[in-house]
């Protein structure tokens, strides 16, 4: 199994193909609906957020503030990605993302963006909130918390061996497209 350590080079990403399992170690930034809309409309990122060569995670984590003021992540499963389809390809290109993590897969526009800019879609296990929260070793920071609220803010997470599967690669292949077509054909035989 490949380990991806952020920041990730284009060559590393281009070597990945659909069906590869990976473990991610380094930094993930969360971003979901509000962040994508904000970036799409030209919103500026705080200087601490370094998306170049990085990974964006479609996730609204459950965070608890500790007595010493630090944050603890108690649940961190993926949310449905397809809602970001209108924005994702542009965000990948504008910010130099090498990976997007979520669940359910994304569409043709994002697939084309992955191919053009050298990025992959990584599918995390939906519902595995506890396993994935255990991979978060530290909450390094939070940005746009006031503006967007906790689930929608950008959380900077330090992760170790975060498991995911490449379901859309940078060569135009999508496991979601493949499985849909194959299952459609199988169903047709059984009707």
């Amino acid at each position: 199994m490949a380990t991806l350590t952020t920041p990730i080079s284009e060559a590393t990403i281009r070597a990945l193909k659909v069906g590869d399992e990976v473990h991610i170690t380094g930094t993930l930034y969360t971003g979901r609906d509000a962040v994508h809309k904000y970036l799409h409309e030209g919103g500026q990122l705080p200087p601490e957020v370094k998306l170049d060569g990085g990974i964006l995670y479609h996730c609204g984590p459950v965070m608890l503030k500790q007595d010493d003021g630090t944050w603890k992540c108690t649940a961190a499963g993926p949310t449905t990605s397809i809602r970001e389809e209108p924005y994702q390809a542009q965000v990948i290109g504008d910010f130099g993302l090498r990976g997007v993590i979520g669940k359910g897969g994304m569409g043709e526009k994002t697939l084309a963006g992955c191919k053009e800019h050298g990025c992959v879609y990584l599918h995390a296990i939906g519902g595995a909130a506890q396993v994935l929260a255990e991979c978060v070793t530290r909450v390094k920071g939070v940005y746009l918390l006031e503006e967007f609220g906790s689930p929608e803010a950008i959380w900077e997470l330090e992760v170790v061996n975060f498991p995911a599967v490449v379901t859309m690669d940078s060569h135009g292949n999508s496991l979601h497209r493949e499985v849909l077509a194959a299952s459609q054909a199988e169903l047709a035989k059984r009707l």
């Binding site: 399992e21 961190a76 519902g127 595995a128 909130a129 506890q130 396993v131 599967v165």
Partner: peptide, 22 residues
């Protein structure tokens, strides 16, 4: 692999008395 992670998640949630899914 996906099912194995799901199994581990079930065990962890029960042990920690935390929501299975967020």
């Amino acid at each position: 692999s996906a099912l194995k992670i799901i199994e581990r998640n079930i065990e962890l949630a029960k042990r920690k008395s935390q929501p299975l899914c967020q």
